[in-house]
Structure formats: structure tokens, C-alpha cells
């Protein structure tokens, strides 16, 4: 069996798409796991042969209890593959489950396929400088898959499948969620953006990010991105904008890095950009080593002029 689970519905649909490809080569069944309340039939319509609908007391995601649930589910079958989403929840869930099942785990795969009946994965290592190709010698193969790596299958109203209800009681752990604060979400999607203007520590304050937005506004499908400190240290932009090794990986046609030094952890997120333009006042900044075009200058001087020049060129 190939089992897929993510707390995030969109990722689950993407996992089902990859899962159905794997089940074909492995001649296996594809099962989705649903923990909590949602519509299980949508998973059938998107490729699952059956859905385990798990009833549990656990109200919200917690890695400890959810791993025990998955382990309990997997005790029954001869499972080949467990696909999980590589969001933060999936990233802490996968190794915990893998460890309980005494098996290997690959986090954030970039490719996954069957070769001579072996499960093979690829993932990026050394901050994007290399790709590791790994083969599972243990079962099940636990793999986390980043959001948007695979496109969901088109919805098929005709598909039918089985819903299997499971009551799984797990003993609670001595840890509990005591507070959840929603942060403002702006709904930007840097991963799909065609042009990204990205802000680094070169910006003096939060309000000035408006200038980056103004430049971005001249492009179709634009988004403002940022380096980790702008989001994680300074809280000037929500996590959705954060680009790099520990943030979003982007592939725009044009990436404009403004006031970003070009540390390898930032570059890890922008390697697939078509064209990279860097603006930095330090002519020795590392970012120029990773850029196609560079302008040495103070961003506060460069950006207003660049905005004018872009506007002019387009008319």
C-alpha cells in the first residue's frame, strides 16, 4: 500500500497525484489518511482507492499523538511508502513516525521514483550545491514532499472508493498546545510569482518595503520576497515572503535581490530563477557572484530611478 497524509488538504491532493504514479509502478493500492473532520470523498475523486477516516480525541495536530495514530494504522498492512507533506507539521511528524517504524526517511524530496523495484529519492543537500540520490533499503519508505512539487490530478466525479472508519485511541503525551495565535496572512504566493522583488537587511525600516512593492507593481504576476532576518528576526514581513533554504523555493523569470548579501542559505531558494538582478551598495557582496546582472549602489537611490526607468521602457 502507498499511504498519504498531510494535515493540509492541498498538499494531500498533491501527494495523491504522486502516490497514484507510484502505485501504478508498484502495483499497489493508494490510501489517503484523514484525521479529524473533512470531506473524505474528495480524496477518492483525486485518485485515492480508499480513505482511512480516523476518529480521535486529539483536536489539533500534535506530532506525538499523530505519529502514534499513523504507526497504529500502518501496523496492519504491508506498506511500501508513506508520503507526508514537507510543511512544518510534516517535517516533525515524518522522522518521528519513521523512527517508530525503524525505517529510513527522506525529508523534502525533489524527485521520487521506482527503479528495479526500489524506491529512489532525490533531495537537495549542501544548501543547493548538490543533489543526493538515495535508495531505500527499509520499509516503508517515509518521504516528505514539499508543497507544489506535484500538481493534483484533475477531479474525477466518477471515481469510487472505500471509506474505512477507524477509531484510534492513543495515550496522550505530557505535552500540550496551550496557545495558538493567528498571524496576519496576506495570501502572497512567491512560489508561483513570475517576478519577485526581494528585500534584505539593507532596508532601514519596515515602511521602506513599500518601495520594493512599487517596483514589483510594474510586473505581471509579481510578489515581494525577503531574506530570513526580515521575516524571522524583524517580523517586517510574514513567513509567506521568506525565501531560501528554510523558506520558500522560488522559480520566477526575474528575481531582484535588493539589499541582500547573498549568503548560501538565501541562494538555496533562488537557484531556479531564470534571471537574477542584484542591488547592493557593497561591490564585494557575495550576491553578485550569484547574479546575472548587478547594480552597485544605495538601494534608496537605485530603486526610485529603476522604477522610473522600467516604467519608461515599458511605454
Amino acid at each position: 500500500m502507498v499511504l498519504v497524509y498531510s494535515e493540509d488538504k492541498d498538499i494531500t491532493l498533491e501527494l495523491l497525484s504522486k502516490g497514484s504514479e507510484l502505485t501504478e509502478s508498484l502495483d499497489e493500492e493508494l490510501s489517503a489518511v484523514l484525521i479529524g473532520e473533512d470531506d473524505p470523498d474528495q480524496y477518492i475523486r483525486h485518485g485515492a482507492d480508499n480513505v482511512f477516516v480516523v476518529k480521535t480525541d486529539q483536536e489539533t495536530f500534535k506530532a506525538e499523538e499523530y505519529s502514534d495514530i499513523l504507526v497504529e494504522l500502518m501496523k496492519e498492512g504491508e506498506d511500501e511508502v508513506l508520503l507526508l507533506g514537507a510543511d512544518k507539521n510534516g517535517q516533525e511528524l515524518a522522522p518521528r513516525v519513521a523512527s517508530k517504524l525503524d525505517t529510513g526517511c527522506v525529508s523534502e524530496c525533489t524527485a521520487l521514483y521506482v527503479e528495479n523495484e526500489d524506491i529512489i529519492t532525490e533531495r537537495v543537500i549542501y544548501s543547493g550545491k548538490a543533489l543526493a540520490v538515495e535508495r531505500f533499503d527499509s520499509k516503508p519508505a517515509v518521504v516528505t514532499v514539499p508543497p507544489k512539487l506535484f500538481d493534483p490530478l484533475p477531479e474525477d466525479e466518477e471515481r469510487s472508493g472505500e471509506l474505512i472508519e477507524k477509531e484510534i485511541e492513543v495515550s496522550p503525551y505530557p505535552s500540550k498546545i496551550v496557545d495558538i495565535k493567528e498571524k496576519e496572512s496576506v495570501g502572497v504566493d512567491v512560489e508561483s510569482a513570475e517576478t519577485i522583488v526581494s528585500c534584505g537587511r539593507g532596508f532601514d525600516n519596515k515602511e521602506d518595503i513599500e518601495i520594493a512593492q512599487e517596483l514589483a507593481n510594474n510586473f505581471e504576476g509579481n510578489a515581494v520576497g525577503c531574506s530570513r532576518p526580515i521575516s524571522a528576526d524583524l517580523n517586517w514581513l510574514p513567513e509567506e515572503h521568506w525565501i531560501g533554504l528554510s523558506g520558500h523555493k522560488v522559480k520566477p523569470r526575474l528575481y531582484i535581490a535588493v539589499g541582500i548579501s547573498g549568503q548560501i542559505q538565501h541562494i538555496a531558494g533562488i537557484r531556479d530563477s531564470d534571471i537574477i538582478l542584484a542591488i547592493n551598495k557593497d561591490e564585494d557582496a557575495l550576491i553578485f557572484e550569484s547574479a546575472d546582472y548587478g547594480i552597485v549602489g544605495d538601494l534608496y537611490e537605485v530603486l526610485p530611478k529603476l522604477i522610473e526607468a522600467v516604467k519608461e521602457k515599458k511605454t
Binding site: F136, Y293, I295
Partner: peptide, 20 residues
């Protein structure tokens, strides 16, 4: 549980044209 089959470099070619 896992065997590394291969580690491939991922070079990144950029034009590096800088105006100063």
C-alpha cells in the same frame, strides 16, 4: 535504512555582469 547512490553537483551558471 537508506543507501546513498550518488551525490551530484548542481552548478549554477550566472552571467555576473555588474555595473558600478
Amino acid at each position: 535504512g537508506l543507501e546513498t547512490v550518488e551525490i551530484k553537483g548542481v552548478p549554477m551558471e550566472r552571467k555576473k555582469i555588474v555595473f558600478h
